[in-house]
Design a protein around this nucleic acid. Structure first.
Length: 438
RNA sequence: GUGGCCGUAGUUCAGUUGGUAGAGCACCUGAUUGUGGUUCAGGUUGUCGUGGGUUCAAGCCCCAUCGGCCACCCCA
């Protein structure tokens, strides 16, 4: 039976047009990270499953992980997310690092899922994390980073928003104010996570099924109606949740002074699935109603080092996938066209005697630095040279034929302006480089 | 895991009530033997996803399987 030419289910073959587009995403990510002092890192593709079992949640391990037993009987997985690897690495080094520790990476991750829009089995995810920053300083910085990234792609606050919640606020409301046991808290998490996807009647039905006390139900209703930070702050004041009040107030104040408050919105239904989040949680949403999907998610987690016997350390981070990002950029017309390659100059010979001169000229031009020089490996008629140059996205064409060979020159033509000049290869190499670099 | 739609040339797709495959784009060649993007003429390209079944005959009907898209479920 013939082998399939298609890539494995849920994965992509990245041919040059797709890979150029991805490189554009990655380049912009690296620039955004670098601009805020975040350092690059990477980790292994494989980790022991136990690393994920500790904090990621059952669902992820049970159904969504690619795992196998290796020849040494170790139960290993292809990384489904980067944060546990990062925590492991930080645990190994944090004592010798200056705080805060700022790190980013663009790992490819795999999850065993049914592929659909915005969701494949393999994707690349921009991960940014900060360890050891004071509460809300790290949070605000991470939000800034996410905003920086999206705005440097050209996106505005009209196109995306960051929906924010606080795990501790939620936990306090559920377990202290409403006096629920942990089982009901967990069930309620699931319910409010679904709140925006179902009708009010269905939501009420799910809540009724929990058989809460009247008091608890009232508090829940109040909570779910909060739709701004102002309302949340009022709610926290009324219910005397001092610690959370101070944190949320600080967040709002910092965001407002930095001018990023226009991007932020409190949303009581954001709770996020991963078990390790302990503080602020957020998701970035496309405001376009046709693409109502989170393009990025993150939050604060302070206990992840404790699974290695490490200290409690404040940490904040987010992950942003390349699939959802390019969906977002495409729907808003922010994705440049990467269909065609680009190069600076295409050089070809008209007869076989001139072929070696083509290669020599190309080598000299490359020594000039930073130029993309494409040669054709066999002589072609002049007419053919231009379409070939176009295919390579060349801005200039250089031709060497019989005449040029006898006087050591080269014809150089600007593809756009059609201006053409004859230059001596030996004496005028600097002029040629200057011409192309203009 | 559940449901819907779909799988035909490199690509996007057409293909009638079953009668052994077609178009655009792309690609190649040519239109006075040293100057392109337009135009024109000609040409190449298929295990019709795979495996079974029904039939004289299957791209078309049936079953299975793999894959794709979408919506659920779930969730980075």
């Amino acid at each position: 039976m013939a082998l399939s030419k298609k890539p494995y289910k849920g994965t992509r073959d990245l041919y040059p047009p797709q890979k150029r587009a991805q490189n554009h995403l990655f380049d912009t990510m690296r620039k955004a990270a670098h601009s805020m002092g975040y350092e690059p890192y990477d980790g292994p593709l494989l980790e022991e499953v136990a690393l994920y079992q500790a904090k990621s949640g059952d669902e992820l391990i049970r159904d969504q992980i690619y795992s196998f037993t290796d020849r040494g009987d170790r139960f290993v997985a292809i990384r489904p997310e980067m944060t546990p690897t990062l925590a492991r690495m930080v645990m190994g080094h944090h004592q010798q690092e200056t705080k805060p520790i700022r790190l980013f990476s663009i790992p490819n991750l795999m999850r065993y899922e049914k592929p659909q829009k915005g969701r494949l089995r393999e994707h690349w995810q921009f991960n940014c994390d900060i360890f050891g920053a004071p509460t809300m300083m790290g949070e605000v910085e991470i939000l800034q980073m996410a905003i920086n990234l999206l705005t440097s792609f050209g996106a505005t606050s009209k196109q995306f928003e960051i929906l924010i919640n606080h795990r501790e606020v939620v936990t306090n409301i559920f377990s202290d104010l409403m006096e629920l046991d942990s089982q009901k808290v967990h069930a309620l998490y699931k319910i409010i996570d679904r709140a925006k996807k179902v009708t009010k009647e269905e939501l009420n039905k799910m809540i009724t099924a929990l058989s809460l006390t009247n008091r608890a139900e009232l508090i829940l209703t109040d909570y779910l109606q909060l739709s701004s930070f102002d309302q949340l702050i009022l709610f926290l004041k009324q219910n005397k949740l001092e610690q959370q009040l101070a944190e949320v107030t600080l967040l709002v104040e910092l965001a407002s002074k930095l001018g990023i408050d226009q991007f932020l919105k409190f949303d009581p239904t954001i709770v996020r699935g991963l078990d390790y989040y302990t503080g602020l949680v957020f998701e970035i949403f496309d405001k376009n109603p046709d693409n109502p999907r989170a393009i990025c998610g993150g939050g604060a987690y302070q206990n992840l080092l404790t699974i290695f016997g490490g200290p409690v350390m404040p940490a904040v981070g987010f992950g942003l996938g390349d699939v959802t990002l390019s969906d977002f950029l495409t729907t808003h017309g922010l994705m440049p066209d990467f269909t065609h390659p680009t190069s600076d100059i295409f050089i070809s010979a008209q007869d076989s005697d001139a072929q070696i001169e083509v290669l020599k000229l190309a080598a000299r031009l490359r020594q000039g630095g930073g130029l993309s020089v494409v040669t054709h490996p066999e002589p072609v008629k002049i007419k053919k040279a231009f379409p070939l140059a176009e295919k390579r996205g060349a801005r200039f064409v250089a031709l060497i034929g019989e005449q040029e060979l006898t006087d050591g020159s080269v014809q150089i033509k600007n593809m756009a302006t059609r201006e053409q000049s004859t230059l001596k290869i030996k004496d005028q190499i600097e002029d040629i480089i200057k011409l192309i670099k203009l």
